[in-house]
Design a protein around this nucleic acid. Structure first.
Lengths: 221, 221
DNA sequence: GGTTTTGCGTACTGTCCAGTACTATTAGGC
DNA sequence: GCCTAATAGTACTGGACAGTACGCAAAACC
């Protein structure tokens, strides 16, 4: 399945290969963007020769596509346990705030921000890569959250009636929690998140997000 | 003030200069990004020689900074009349929906999206340009909207008590209206907005945004 | 131990582009 | 009418980088 042969059988022993190579390439792409990333940097970072790199991936384009696909594959179900935790939480509001904080920590973390930026930048040249990222990394998680919210609706804990309503609720909760800080981080360099006083700001955003969310979708009248 | 001498006094007659030159440069930067934009393309687009271009702007960096600054200057108060219209609107909900639609039309239009992308991409290399853009183009409008919402709060039409509450309300209204479509457009190529069936989708997003907004900040209990 | 496959290292080609040099040309100042 | 400033046009320099060529080294397989 992998574009690189699974086991090295013969030949001179080399440096990184397979998943390690993709991890190195990912770091190079994330740090420098598509244009700024050089195949020399990937090769030397992986401690292989450029020749070997080109044997595994016949062009920079192919390597880029493989890096993004690999990333999406790895982050497949990282959200699921947290959505499950919302369903199991004793208090709804506390559970929602916790989930909002988890989404913030995930989406606003430097690697995820960098990957978003990379994919968005190359969306024009590689529309299929971008579409795959959007579908399997974003829409998938939104759908998962929507189903959980609908479950809470069925239980009578939220005013969420059908699948459409749940999709709207999931979308609004997500963006209330992350849009403002995401915008700030996007229009700045890659300042770190979670350290400093950003933590307090994020917590306030999450609390306000849940307050507004419950104003619309809360069951208590 | 302008980096280009205001009036050509002597010498051979040339092509575009001053504001026209910046408009041409803007188009080139927006269409191709910083790295993809070439000084040759700017020069030939403005029908001047590369020499003349370099006489006005001694480097690509300086030209870029001037383009962004010029853009921010031009779009300074484009939001103001629409915020005023909200204050003058007979029905609050209708006024909010109309404002939401205006924000969508503005921020999700191709040139604004492209400028966002450009500035975000070069935020690391030109942090001051990005900070200026964020402050004068984004925060300024948010502040304007927040003041209007506080005015509505003073009138008793919204549950907005102080400046902090108004800032939160402005931020949430904005993002409820534009975050989801902005995300989709960012993670895709530059598909047009406003044509096709996007219009209907945006209208639905605006309606849902206002419904949620009023659930939290509406005066009616 | 010979063959083959894989990989290393390095050098090279072709291309693109920012920025510069140089010459010829045109318009205004005096 | 000459001088000077600005410009056009074109060619050049220097650097970066994708992708290739080629000779050598090492490991597995028989």
């Amino acid at each position: 399945m992998s574009p690189i042969s699974a086991a090295r059988t013969r030949g001179r022993p080399g440096g990184s290969s397979g998943a390690e190579l993709l991890a190195v390439a990912r770091q190079v792409f994330l740090a420098s963007g598509y244009a700024g990333a050089t195949m020399d940097a990937v090769a030397s970072g992986a401690k292989i020769s450029k020749q070997t790199l080109y044997r595994h991936y016949p062009s920079k384009d192919v390597l880029y596509a493989a890096v993004v696909r690999d990333w999406v594959d790895q982050g497949h179900d990282r959200m699921r346990p947290h959505v499950q935790a919302l369903l199991d939480a004793p208090g709804l509001a506390e559970g929602l705030v916790r989930l909002a904080r988890v989404m913030q920590a995930g989406i606003l973390s430097p690697p995820v921000l960098q990957m978003r930026k990379l994919v968005a930048n190359e969306a024009e040249r590689f529309p299929e890569v971008a579409a795959d990222y959007l579908e399997r990394s974003w829409n998938r998680n939104q759908h998962m959250l929507a189903e959980a919210l609908r479950e809470l609706g069925d239980r009578g804990e939220l005013r969420v009636a059908d699948a459409d309503g749940a999709a709207v609720a999931a979308e609004q909760l997500t963006w209330l929690a992350i849009a403002a800080p995401l915008n700030r981080l996007t229009l700045q360099g890659g300042r770190t998140v979670g350290g400093g006083r950003d933590g307090g700001e994020l917590e306030a955003v999450a609390a306000e997000a849940v307050a507004t969310f419950l104003g619309r979708f809360g069951a208590g009248e």
